[in-house]
Computed example of a mutant assay.
Amino acid sequence: MSSEAGSLERAMRRALDLAATPGVPLGPNPRVGCVLLAPDGTEVAEGFHRGAGTPHAEAAALAAAGDAARGTTAVVTLEPCNHTGRTGPCAQALIEAGVSRVVFAQPDPNPEAAGGAQTLRAAGVTVELGLLEREARRLNRAWTFAHEHGRPFVTWKFATTLDGRSGAADGSSRWITGEAARRDVHRLRASCDAILVGTGTVLRDDPELTVRDALDQPLPPELQPLRVIMGTRDVPADGRTSNGAAETLHLRTHEPVEVLAALHARERQHLFLEGGPTVAAAFLAAGCIDEVVAYVAPKLLGAGPHAVGELGIGNIADALDLEVEDVSVLGHDVRITGRPRGRN
């Protein structure tokens, strides 16, 4: 690797670290970082996007650099935007600042913002793309998925015993897994902007559906994931999903596609599915589950409800096949994370 290539990669990794700065809202905007390099490869300035309505990463870096931005290379995790929203187009800001080259990781999948590379080239700026693109896409995987597919990315979480039971036959088991696994669920909730259960779960368990146990203190209501209830039955107005701990949306439908369309219209990009076996089966049958996180407890019950309802699969050749991405031990339990084969 040449010294220049090494400098660019180090700058891009720094930009990715900046983009992942803790505390940045999950959406609706992507996480973006930018590093400005002088011709000799030294860093001039850096910046990152802090959420909707704040300066974009490029604008923040340009402001920090001032006149020193002229002649620099801008290393950015996402293609500079080409539209005017709450802030002006970053492609034009880079041109006006005299930046001579732009290296970005991921093309912008948002048709309203894409086209920055073309604008930059038309102004005589050298443009290169694709450096650490996989890492950049992973950083904004839900945002990217939502723009490419027109719906939120769906993670289905469930807990089960070794024999596939989600609870005891007499209804006595509140928890299948231990404390470490339950804290991990809250960590995953915090990475999503919507949590969904069916009306059956609300009526049976009265869950609060908020992020609590994985953080030093609970998230304020405005930063909590949207609580989504799916189903046509009424739910108690004095239940925990109706408290002020987070916003709640009741979608009176049994169709996953309708639910996802409604959430996409609200700019929600990552749905955490925690519903019971009927809701899970509906999303699986609709082909609307993109990731599975299963917490398996080393217990045997022999009876009780299953984690998923009837899927109409009668032959092992037709089974939903998951590509396992991670297996971790959490206390006495095992977490298995996978995606349906064939999904990006």
Rank of each mutant, 00 (worst) to 15 (best):
S2M: 10
S2F: 10
S3E: 12
A5S: 13
M12S: 02
A15G: 14
A19D: 11
P22R: 09
P22I: 12
G23T: 12
V24G: 08
V24K: 10
P28F: 03
P28Q: 05
N29V: 14
R31Q: 13
V32P: 01
G33K: 02
C34I: 02
L36G: 13
A38R: 14
P39Q: 08
D40L: 08
D40A: 10
G41E: 07
E43T: 15
A45P: 02
F48Y: 14
H49G: 13
H49T: 11
H56C: 12
H56Y: 13
A63T: 09
E79D: 11
P80V: 08
H83P: 06
R86Y: 12
G88W: 04
P89M: 12
C90S: 15
C90K: 07
A93T: 02
I95R: 04
V99K: 06
V102A: 01
A105R: 07
P107D: 09
N110T: 14
G115K: 10
A117Y: 01
T119D: 01
G124V: 08
V125Q: 00
V125N: 02
V125E: 01
A136G: 15
N140D: 13
R141P: 05
W143V: 12
W143A: 10
T144E: 15
F145N: 05
A146D: 07
H147I: 06
H149N: 12
R151G: 10
V154D: 05
V154E: 03
A159F: 07
L162E: 07
L162S: 09
G164L: 02
S172V: 11
W175V: 09
A181G: 13
D184G: 13
D184A: 12
D184L: 09
D193Q: 11
T199Q: 08
D205K: 00
T210I: 15
V211T: 09
D213H: 08
L215M: 03
D216T: 11
P218V: 00
L223Q: 15
L226S: 11
R227E: 05
I229K: 03
T232H: 08
T232W: 00
D238G: 07
R240W: 03
A246F: 02
A246I: 03
H250N: 05
P256D: 09
V257G: 11
E258N: 08
A262T: 12
L263H: 02
R266Q: 04
E267F: 11
F272D: 13
L273S: 06
A285V: 10
A286N: 00
A286C: 00
V292W: 08
V292Q: 08
V293W: 04
A294G: 09
A294Q: 11
V296M: 09
V296A: 07
V296H: 00
G302E: 06
A303E: 15
P305E: 06
A307V: 14
G309D: 01
E310A: 11
E310H: 15
I316A: 14
D333P: 06
R335G: 05
T337E: 03
R339K: 14
